[in-house]
Amino acid sequence: MGINKTAMDGTLESSDIQITVSKGTDGVQISLESDVKKRFGDDIIATIKEVVKKFGLDNVNIKAVDQGALDCVIRARTITAIQRAMDNSEQPAWEAL
């Protein structure tokens, strides 16, 4: 499954993460910008991947700009961005949460 439009959630403020989800053609592509990329980059990407998997997305591009967000924030921002991109923020896919 893929998505057809771009959507974003989150901010660039401290302890937050800005997630931009857009249409992909080459699997799940995640780019990450973070001050703590060296230490926590793999963990952040793993968290995002887990959410993407729950939504069953095969082709999607995700741009993540992290300002030191906690795991739960990363998950929440990713979920909202994906739901916006899938046009179902009104009817959340609860089973994916």
């Binding site: 974003m8 901010t11 401290s14």
Partner: peptide
């Protein structure tokens, strides 16, 4: 400190643009 205001400004502009479908 640490570009707090800068990030706030850019973040606000990107969110506003996103609401208009510009990414």
């Amino acid at each position: 400190e640490d570009g707090v205001y800068f990030n706030k400004v850019v973040s606000n502009l990107l969110t506003n643009l996103g609401q208009h479908g510009v990414f």
